[in-house]
Design a protein around this nucleic acid. Sequence first.
DNA 1: TTATCATATGGAGTCAACTCCAAGTCAATA
DNA 2: TATTGACTTGGAGTTGACTCCATATGATAA
Lengths: 125, 125
Amino acid sequence: MTITEVSKKYDISQDTLRYYERIGLIPAVNRTKGGNRDYTEESCGWIELAKCMRSAGIPIEALIEYCALTQQGEETITARKELLVEERRKLLEKMEDMQKTMDKLNYKIDRYEKAEITGVLSWDK
Amino acid sequence: MTITEVSKKYDISQDTLRYYERIGLIPAVNRTKGGNRDYTEESCGWIELAKCMRSAGIPIEALIEYCALTQQGEETITARKELLVEERRKLLEKMEDMQKTMDKLNYKIDRYEKAEITGVLSWDK
DNA sequence: TTATCATATGGAGTCAACTCCAAGTCAATA
DNA sequence: TATTGACTTGGAGTTGACTCCATATGATAA
């Protein structure tokens, strides 16, 4: 696949795709004889992973390290697992924060809706 | 309350507290005769709200607008509600992304755990 | 009263994560 | 073959959200 195709498929800009590769967030992508990128299925898997992880706010630094570990063979399996476990822990924490915020938003929206009906906005706590 | 007390209470740096006020993310805080900030209970409510919203990644710009609307009286209630509804929508979307990432992390961690036991890392999809 | 401390301001600096750009190369169409 | 268009690189610029700093001033302890 060309970079244009990958860019469209995953809705990531070509600049970002090149950037991810340059910083080592994904392994080096195959090239055609002319030097153009030729994404294999495996490359696409990395792009998809990157997109998924980044959409949840997993920091780039962690993903670079994860990518580096996978390049070093099977003796890094435990290290990789531990890295993911740590990121999962942080992610869970963020999700809990978000749930709290969601609760607060629901509460406030509800208050405003009641105020629209009654014309009275009660004092918030 | 002094800025030092508020900073400790909410675990937000004094610089950030001043910054939030300067950009209008929270309304202007009362001052003592000497010009020092004197946070009322209401101010603290704003700080708490700011902290909560920011911890979920609600953008500063939206919070500035929300704060501005509250300063304009009760005729902005509907606008405020709509703003919060929109942020809630985006938050829900992010939470869904995070859940997907969480599922992927769980799947990958599980694979690595199995590999640690069996010594074989199966090909990922 | 003097020294130290808390706080004030405006502005500059930092950091993560892109995003854009200039200049050049390769490939495909008229 | 000439031109257009896709792609390359290295590096600079941008954005959001702080964070730090220099300098000044009000408040408190010795």
